[in-house]
Design a protein around this nucleic acid. Structure first.
Length: 374
RNA sequence: GGGGGAGUUCCCGAGUGGCCAAAGGGGGCAGACUGUAAAUCUGUUGUCUACGACUUCGAUGGUUCGAAUCCGUCCUCCCCCA
């Protein structure tokens, strides 16, 4: 249900229809790992910060409160009272982030829960089953996100296994869909291959053959250089199905996102704006700044004088700096609202720029500036 | 008046002859963070002409090759007894 309404170079302006609404692309999905955006932001705030889509996590919600609890309370939409589209990540990223707490086998990944150590066997089938019960609109395939650097041999063996896992995910998904567990849910496959373009291409060919509703690029921003990342994207994107949504997982800084959009990516998510916000690192049209710095101690300015977010329309840098220094939770909330508003409205501007065929102008005017430290 | 205890670098607080510019917290200053084990983590925090030198542990005078650490005197604070 993805339609491309316009293009500007390799960039695409699309619409992706889900049971809970249309996602206008390119889109930034707001990360709500445990069914909440960290920093005290609830579903009630999402409209204010122009959020289109939320992203929740299979591994974390399986551990707590458990997918059955969520299912009983109306799935993620009912549980967190968010009526818009929701994507669930499969747990594949935790294979990377919790690498000290898991063992990989052909069957799946045996995690030692980071909460209490209890063993959790996550398989392609269980991940899909959990995501079905969570009731997300988009489910992600269970993959292995492996670290960089990785040897070519390791990467080659890993993508073979991830391909086999994807077939199992697809089968489980079809079973759930046709069995009406979650009839409207779609499955996105995930490309891996590290920084090896030959493996990225081989894997893309293999997974594209499954003809899934969408495809993601995984395993980036896990230690490789920005140059390597760009190189992978430049080689890989032309090999991805042109009529399917393309999702660059976990990326990134504003400049990273703008570049990827120019290269043809449609979906993004990243914890950076929320995490940075919690640490006082906020974005403006002129560049990013650290609110904790002494120079803002008496500043009456809002974070960004051109910003219309709830935070900038009410509060000064000096006040926010004080809240951060004092450890007040309000600081986190206000900064997160601002940064997510910045990301979401940047995407609005990008969509408009693509429609008006001036994406490159937007890119050259802003990509470097947004990431620059001021 | 008698007895006891304490004064350490921005703060609290270790240290009771050399390994002490002085542990550890806190606070301050700065940095990192990319499908969230992150309201976390890291660095730094006496001065300088800076791989070395100088000043500092209430004040001052001693002992010693060497003192934040030992001794004398003084100042300040706390507790108990009268």
């Amino acid at each position: 249900m993805f339609t491309i309404n316009g293009t500007d170079g390799a960039a695409r302006r699309g619409s992706f229809i889900t049971p809970h609404g249309v996602i206008e692309t390119p889109v930034f999905m707001n990360v709500a790992t445990q069914a909440a955006i960290k920093g005290g932001v609830s579903a009630l705030d999402l409209l204010d910060i122009h959020c289109q889509t939320a992203l929740c996590n299979t591994y974390h919600l399986h551990l707590r409160p458990g997918e059955d609890v969520v299912a009983e309370l109306g799935g993620l939409h009912g549980f967190m009272r968010y009526p818009g589209p929701i994507l669930t990540d499969s747990g594949g990223f935790q294979v990377f982030s919790l690498s000290g707490l898991r063992k990989i086998s052909e069957e799946g990944v045996l995690f030692a829960s980071h909460l209490d150590g209890r063993r959790i066997l996550m398989t392609p089938e269980s991940s899909m089953m959990i995501q079905g019960k969570l009731g997300s609109d988009i489910a992600m395939a269970f993959d292995e996100c492996f670290e960089n650097p990785a040897t070519h041999d390791y990467a080659a063996a890993s993508i073979e296994r991830t391909t086999r896992w994807l077939t199992r995910c697809r089968d489980a998904w079809l079973l759930g869909r046709d069995g009406s567990t979650n009839p409207g849910q779609v499955l996105f496959g995930i490309n891996q291959g590290g920084v090896y373009n030959d493996l990225r291409a081989r894997h893309m060919t293999a997974i594209a053959a499954l003809d899934l509703p969408g495809y993601a690029i995984g395993g980036l921003a896990v230690g490789e250089s920005a140059q390597q990342r760009e190189d992978v994207l430049r080689h890989l994107l032309p090999l991805m199905p042109i009529d399917k949504p393309r999702y660059l997982m976990g990326v990134g800084k504003p400049g990273d996102i703008l570049l990827a959009i120019a290269l043809g990516v449609d979906f993004f998510d990243c914890v950076l704006p929320a995490r940075n916000a919690r640490h006082g690192h906020v974005y403006t049209r002129q560049g990013c700044l650290n609110l904790k710095n002494e120079k803002h101690k008496q500043s009456e300015l809002p974070i960004d004088t051109e910003c219309h977010c709830p935070t900038c329309t009410h509060f000064s840098r000096a006040y926010l700096r004080h809240l951060l220094a004092a450890g007040e939770v309000l600081a986190l909330r206000l900064c997160v609202l601002h940064n997510l508003y910045f990301y979401n409205t940047m995407m609005e501007q990008v969509r408009q720029a693509i429609e008006e065929k001036r994406l490159m102008t937007y890119f050259w005017e802003n990509a470097e500036r947004f990431d620059r430290r001021i």
